[in-house]
Nucleic acid binder design. Structure first.
Lengths: 193, 193
DNA sequence: CGCGGGTTTGATGATGCTCAAGCCCGGTGG
DNA sequence: CCACCGGGCTTGAGCATCATCAAACCCGCG
């Protein structure tokens, strides 16, 4: 149940066995079926979710009704609406499971308590935030400099696990173009070889 | 000299007068003339810079030689290449002054020391990072959903201080389009009224 | 006064979007 | 077991937005 989580800890910080044991009590295990929703647009996001198994995504709708995927999260990743979670504001995002999934949830209070009791957990959280910030910066640069085809190729290289497990139109909405465009890109790549 | 910095502290956390006094010794005051460079592409970013006076920007060049502005920073803002600063990697960005400016610099070591000695400073840093993350998320959403004209209007509303003080082509490169397009957008907005 | 960076304007073109239709395939109910 | 349904993917035609390239203009500064 906590395999992926502890693996994630160990990649960034060092926790004692006692601390790991203590951790367990703060997380709420939760299973989601495919298409079930963890956070509904308009609600306040009260959970930081860690994915033990499965795959989720967050997305929002613009005024024209177009879907924009913000993030995917597979095993070993965190997902939440940080803006809503941190400021208790209403979220514009929806977070849903794309496969049957197993999560470990952390409420705001549990997170604060953990940071108080285990200093290394605060460090872990800060490192996560730093990495997320840097990844977002890279994503902005990518939208400014790359063509649709380059973005898709890069995504495939960076996250092959995601490209294979997710419907095409969601990849397209993540990369910032339409499903039709992605279809044509794939055709073009096929014809190249 | 520290007016803007202490103002920024007070907006986010509470420091005792003694802590404020202690802080001062960790910062390195630095003046930059217009067009002078704080961080050169290829170097490792060793400073977190706080702007007391003036205005700076960070930018990078893509393979075609096009300039992309990443961030502007006016009085009361921080600017750095966080990715390079935190991981000691070579920066792809250049940071330069757009006007004669006065900065307060924080090295990696000074930052760590301050976080050790003043817990509220660590909280302040975390809040900055959170805000930066949220702002980046909003910027990504904006590029996905808005037209060039909408982006420009929004920028004017959000940061009128920047729009007035910065050359047009830098605004365009920040917003993700060309100087010619921005010129046409401005013409269009003029003709509307 | 002349230079040069920044901005404007015009003509043309590429990239990706929209709308519409057809196809493929897996799931469901008769 | 088959027919049907529907979601997702593909394909095509026309179109909108913005980029590119080139020229002219404007204006502050040396």
């Amino acid at each position: 149940m906590f395999d992926q989580l502890f693996k994630s800890f160990q990649e960034k910080v060092t926790l004692t066995p006692a601390e790991m044991e203590l951790c367990k009590s703060f997380f709420i295990p939760k299973k989601l079926r495919k298409k079930q929703v963890l956070l509904q647009e308009g609600d306040v996001c009260i959970y930081n979710a860690f994915v033990e198994k499965g795959i989720l995504r967050s997305y929002f709708l613009d005024e024209k009704g177009n879907e924009h995927t913000v993030q995917f999260a597979i095993e070993g990743w965190w997902i939440t609406d940080l803006s809503s979670f941190l400021t208790n504001s209403h979220s514009i995002y929806t977070i849903e499971a794309l496969e049957d999934s197993e999560l470990l949830l952390l409420t705001t209070e549990a997170r604060e308590a953990l940071m108080d009791q285990i200093p290394m957990f605060e460090r872990y959280q800060r490192l996560l935030l730093q990495n997320a910030y840097i990844a977002n910066q890279a994503r902005i640069n990518s939208t400014l400099t790359e063509t649709a085809e380059e973005k898709f190729i890069k995504l495939g290289k960076a996250y092959p696990g995601i490209v294979q497990r997710v419907p095409q139109h969601m990849l397209a909405s993540y990369l910032g173009f339409t499903a039709e465009t992605l279809s044509r890109i794939r055709k073009h790549l096929r014809e190249k070889e």
